[in-house]
Amino acid sequence: MIEVLIFATLNGLVTGLLLFMLASGLTLIFSMMGVLNFAHASFYMLGAYFAYSISLYTGFWPALIIAPLLVGVVGALVERYGLRRVHKSGHVAELVFTFGLAFLIEEAVQLFWGRSTINYESPTLLDFPLFTLFGQNFPVYKAFMIFISVSIFIGLYFVLTRTRIGIIIQAAITHPNTVANLGHNVPFIFMAVFGVGSGLAGLAGVIAGPVLTTFPGMATVLGSIVFVIVVIGGLGSLAGALVASLLIGLLQSYAIASDVGMQDLLDLLGVSFAADHPLNDIWRLTLPQIAPIMPFLLLVLVLIFRPSGLLGKREG
């Protein structure tokens, strides 16, 4: 049992930190521009596919640098020539724009790379177990993923709190008009933040692609979860995003690892139902079965009882 707990914690950490890399960019974009970017996970997918194509020529390590940069440039271009034009039609139009963009990117990926799963593999350098516990390997690649995510968090935290540009960004989050009045080029800041946010998502894709398989549906699988994290964590709160990412990562991991279900609860209460009870689908539910929908349950509950999110200071 103990090994299940240990591995569930490690897995939860890996997933949670990966989600954080996506959520951090999204929350920055969201809090600055008020845009809930539906296409954010699509940039994550682009990162994986770009890295795959680049790694065919150069190997993994250059791809690790080049692919996120490329995705960042794509993101900045989308902001400059797409979002900015739509901006004047209001928030709904922006949201709908990113919604369409996500749709389009998925189709474009299928056009260029095909519809099947592609064979994007982790570098051979990291292809060995870090340690073996109770007969199960913990691949060094996962440790590498943790390392990258933690570095990103520290880096972002440092930039946002210790540098001039970080302070401007923080100010723009809470008081965008004042920042513009102070003479800062807010449209440029928007473009830069959008680019960096997309690049971070791309980086997450580069490192997650080999582990979580690279296929055209990978953005859809992750897309709405990232949204959930940003909203649960609270708009504009990087720390909130971190907490929510880890919370959801661990929650899902523990739920899957557990073996309990409604049956156990009913046994505990001493209740039992006939084998042909019409609601047997409910009475036989297990925690692992509902693990993937728990984030959405959490989302609805948080929005009803605390619309500003766990650590957020303002409402959307």
Partner: peptide, 30 residues
């Protein structure tokens, strides 16, 4: 409970409910 607020809060609740109902529809087979 979802129409208390408009804007992003409403949009997000609708997204969450949508995913919940769709997922439950696969679980509640009967």
């Amino acid at each position: 409970f979802s129409t208390h607020k408009a804007g992003t809060v409403f949009a997000m609740i609708s997204l969450g409910i949508g995913e919940l109902v769709a997922a439950s529809s696969l679980i509640l087979v009967s």
